[in-house]
Nucleic acid binder design. Structure first.
Lengths: 197, 197, 197, 197
DNA sequence: GCCTAAGCGAGACGGTACGTCAGGTCTTGCA
DNA sequence: TGCAAGACCTGACGTACCGTCTCGCTTAGGC
């Protein structure tokens, strides 16, 4: 007797997409507190159970929605500019991030995700693996290139560098600081690269 | 008719304290999502209306609860050690913060507050003024002293320094990163003070 | 110190009435299977919880709705005609019951209640006490009068007589028998009074 | 090409039996409200669709389940005792019915069926034809024999007699009356045969 | 020291969303 | 092609809290 196929669940792709689309739409329309499972299901034309069947929490849906968006946006992968001048390149990247944070249609969904992540370690792990890691990889590549070019100390902890670049930025953004602008991005890059002592 | 006295609110102090105590207790016992106004009122032996009368939101109650705790803890004010060696002093401070973050009974309430702040700019402003500012003031004092001693460049943006010290730390903590230890604190201080270029 | 009043629940009468009215209205409009707690609450302009707070089950609501209707209808109490001729009086009463059973607006609610009662002994007890007992009382009075007049045997078990009058009637009605008419009512009365041997 | 067989439904007998068995089992185990199509399908190891394909409603399944049970029990047909004494024979029959009603494993399924019947005229017709009619036939036979023997009036409406015997009994049983015992059965038979006037 | 208005505990209320359950339909392989 | 398995949309379930409201009670000023 042939091994019976374990009846793998025949998930309906159209529903999956409708749910993620609805989530993204709603994130742009209503304050996050109003983003309910019911509203997602209604907008997607889907039963609530279908959401509960495939996602563990609302945060997981939001993460997936953002993931789908970023994947369709990137295509193959992200790459940082490499002009040979590390300072200039990093400033460009951080300024871009700053601009994204300033645009609610971009930042609102991520802010929503952050709220879920902070309250849910499991989701945080998923976030790091799926969303953060690709970005970090791209920056790492650029930093290594700078290391080879002698623009960064050979023993520099590149992970730490990344955190020192993004930590303060994210911090100010999450806390609704008004002083999150290009000047700050520039000063941050300078500070990281030259130190203060 | 005599001029009516302006009827200044006769708030009951014992209820205020009971509410803040109950909030702090519950933050240590249940996951933040389970911290409801009703549970606070029940635990405090207080009517719900009494909470709604005096606080604008659950976040405001949480902020007040933490405020009350920190005030009773500090007494007059915080002061950083000043051994003359800035590096050593900052490492000590960041290691202490790291330790606090590692202790759930300490960090859970702040994490809860962060969730509220991220979703509510008004609360964020209150947080910066009431809770963050005193701490930052203390660090600023220490940094200025270091500037005078020539251990920090005279033109250093001290606010930026603070963000570069705390941003990465907070970031890792909020995202449940496992690599948040003394070594990281030390490397962070070294990175900020010496730069990587 | 005076004994503290035990804070008896301050139930809102207007809601109670709105719920019972809505229940009765719906029983006349939709098939019983569609009578949901949610539809009652919506029609009554009331939160679901208000129903769950004061009634144990949907059946209890239905019973109360019928009770309220019958109370407002009767006023003080029911009384059977007493023409001196028991046969004639009983036939009149059973024919009236037959007519009620034939009118859906009358019988649909009771049919609904029966469904609940059959599945719930507790509700059955309530039904007997609150709805059935008054009717039976009235018939009992008439039967006793007939006993005194010598139209019924002195040792007749009047409760049994009532069941023999109403049991077959109800039975046919519940089972949707088509042969439930005045002729049946008449024959039933004759049968009960004279027997078949 | 051979003439295509006209695709008569190839119903799987084993599934039919499994469904009826599962229904009967569950009726004895769980309160009727918990008897769902899903639970039947799961217990029978059958897809829900198979039930929907062959039965119109849950009530129809229940009816079939009881039908199957009674058929297997009886064999060819039921017959009442005929001792020559109608009173004695009827009392024996009604006492037996009373005993059945008192045994939940016997009466629970019928009670369930009653609930469905009361709400569904179509099912009621089926019930009368398939389950009730055979029993009534048997009683009719016995009553006719009594008529010939002069123990019943020649003009007695035997259908009415049956209803007068079973109506009160069923009534009390459905309404969970506690006073449903042998004494009641006996008094009922006496009442039907001799009347109360 | 009494009077009176406010704060207060309690908790009912109209709502919204939760997460679950079952209904009845549809789809996908297996037999 | 009948069937098991189970995903799917639908809609109701009973619960938890929301923020508002109404009750008496208590309690602190102002007379």
């Amino acid at each position: 007797m042939p091994p019976r196929t374990p009846a793998q669940p025949r998930r309906r792709e159209s529903s999956r997409i409708a749910i993620l689309d609805a989530t993204r739409d709603l994130l742009g329309e209503v304050p996050y507190a109003k983003l309910t499972i019911e509203s997602i299901a209604a907008r997607a034309g889907v039963g609530k159970q279908t959401i509960y069947r495939w996602w563990e929490s609302k945060g997981a849906v939001v993460l997936d929605a953002l993931l789908a968006a970023s994947e369709s946006a990137e295509g193959t992968g992200i790459e940082l500019p490499d002009s040979g001048d590390l300072t200039r390149d990093l400033k460009a990247v951080l300024r871009a991030t700053t601009a994204e944070f300033a645009d609610p249609s971009f930042s609102a969904p991520i802010r929503a995700l952050m709220i879920e992540i902070i309250a849910d370690p499991a989701l945080a792990a998923l976030y790091q693996e799926k969303l953060q890691q690709p970005t970090h990889q791209a920056i790492l590549t650029r930093l290594r290139s700078a290391q080879h070019a002698g623009q960064l100390r050979p023993d520099a902890d590149l992970t730490l560098v990344i955190d020192m670049l993004y930590g303060p930025l994210t911090q100010r953004w999450l806390l609704h600081s008004t002083t999150l602008d290009d000047a700050f991005a520039d000063a941050l890059v300078d500070g990281v690269l030259h130190g203060f002592a």
